[in-house]
Computed example of a mutant assay.
Amino acid sequence: MAKRKIDVGDGRAAVAAVRGGAANRAATATAVRYLLQLLEERAPGKTVEVRVPPFGAVQVVQGPEHTRGTPPNVIEMDADTWVRLATGQTSWEAEREDGRIAASGTRADVAHLVPVLW
C-alpha cells in the first residue's frame, strides 16, 4: 500500500505556521512529514534513512538498498532543526557543528539535497 501524500496546500500552510512560530503539534507533524515527502521525491532511493522523531522517517538516495534491521546510513534530528534545514533557514554544516544532527555512515550526508523546494 502506498503512503498517503500530504496535499501541497496543507503542507505549505503547516510549514508557514511552523516558520511563523504559530504551530501546534499537528501542524508541526504535517510540516515535518511534508518536507520529508519532498526530500523523498527529490532523492528517491533506500540508501540513507532520515529520521525526525516522533513525526516521520524516509529512506532516500540511490545506491545500495537497505531492507532489514538498522540501516548503515542514518541521519536523525529534531523537528525544529529539520524544518529550518529543509526550508533553507540554516545549513547542514551549521547544524552538524552545533550537534543538532546525528549522522552515521559513509553516505549519511544530505547537504546537497537541502533546502528542499517547498
Rank of each mutant, 00 (worst) to 15 (best):
E76D: 12
P54K: 04
K46N: 13
A102P: 00
G11S: 09
R68H: 14
A29F: 14
A111S: 15
A108D: 09
W92P: 03
I75H: 01
G45E: 06
R4M: 13
T47Q: 15
V83F: 02
V50A: 10
D109L: 05
V116W: 00
A17K: 12
R68K: 15
V110L: 13
V52C: 02
R12A: 04
L38G: 06
G20W: 00
T28D: 06
T47W: 03
A13G: 05
A103K: 02
Q62K: 12
A14F: 00
L38Q: 15
Q89C: 03
G56W: 09
G105C: 05
L36Y: 04
A23M: 08
L113E: 10
A29W: 13
P71A: 15
V8P: 06
V48S: 08
I75Y: 01
A86W: 07
A57E: 13
L39P: 10
G105K: 02
V52M: 08
R100C: 10
T87S: 10
V114I: 09
K46S: 13
G69D: 03
E40R: 12
G88D: 02
E97H: 10
Y34H: 07
E65Q: 14
V110N: 02
G105R: 06
A14C: 08
L39Q: 11
P64S: 12
G45A: 06
R96E: 12
N24L: 00
L113H: 06
V18G: 02
R100G: 07
D10H: 11
A79M: 04
A103W: 03
Y34S: 04
R4E: 15
A29L: 10
L35Y: 02
P72I: 03
T81C: 11
D10N: 12
R12K: 09
G20C: 02
M1Q: 06
A86R: 07
T106H: 07
N73A: 07
K3A: 15
E93T: 11
Q89A: 11
A94E: 15
V83M: 02
Q37N: 03
T67N: 14
E41V: 00
H112E: 14
L85E: 09
A103H: 07
P53K: 02
V48Y: 05
I101R: 14
A31H: 04
G45P: 14
L35Q: 11
